[in-house]
């Protein structure tokens, strides 16, 4: 009986650890789509390298750098991808586009803006949060003093 129970438990675990069908389908479809739209894949693969780098170098727990950089990197890549579609969605055009300095400048420039945002907005917001907490800390201390003044030291001991 005990062995049977163990087997059924393992089966259950396997069932729950299995990815849902939609995800497995997406994983299957992604390389297919990449092959079908190979020119776009080439453009995005080259233009989005800074995002990949950001994801690799970000050692923070939240891993928000790749998203910050990636968003602006994407904004710079989208016009190139549109021009790929305009000039014909072929592999040679894709290679031609990615080897053009303007294309690299545009997409990587977006990534640079992303990094600028990442390195400026973060301390700015942190400074605001810190200031707010400092003000709250003072307010708490003030209120404590008020309570002691009104109720005496008993309010502390009780």
């Amino acid at each position: 009986m005990a062995k049977k129970d163990k087997k059924s438990e393992i089966k259950k675990k396997l069932k729950t650890s299995r990815m849902p069908f939609s995800v497995r389908f997406a994983f299957f479809m992604l390389p297919v789509a990449a092959l079908v739209f190979l020119p776009s894949t080439i453009v995005f693969s080259v233009c989005m390298i800074p995002t990949l780098v950001a994801a690799i170098v970000d050692n923070h727990q939240q891993k928000t750098a790749w998203l910050t950089v990636g968003a602006m990197n994407l904004a710079g890549t989208v016009p190139i991808w549109f021009s790929l579609w305009d000039t014909g969605h072929t592999v040679p055009v894709a290679f031609q586009l990615v080897s053009t300095p303007g294309t690299i400048f545009l997409s990587y420039g977006g990534a640079v803006i992303g990094w600028i945002i990442y390195y400026n907005v973060t301390p700015f917001v942190a400074a605001i949060v810190l200031g707010k907490n400092e003000a709250r800390y003072k307010a708490v201390e003030r209120r404590q003093k008020e309570l002691i003044k009104k109720w005496g030291e008993d309010v502390v001991s009780n």
């Binding site: 923070h60 939240q62 928000t64 750098a65 998203l67 910050t68 950089v69 968003a71 602006m72 994407l74 904004a75 989208v78 016009p79 549109f82 977006g110 992303g114 945002i117 990442y118 400026n120 907005v121 973060t122 301390p123 700015f124 917001v125 942190a126 400074a127 605001i128 949060v129 810190l130 907490n133």
Partner: peptide, 26 residues
């Protein structure tokens, strides 16, 4: 202190800006 919040705000800011740029281009 506040850096995590800052990074999240930066991510949001960047995402919103990106959407605006792409939408504007389109």
């Amino acid at each position: 202190f506040g850096k995590a919040t800052g990074r999240q705000v930066a991510m949001l800011f960047s995402s919103v800006l990106s959407v605006i740029v792409i939408a504007g281009y389109v």
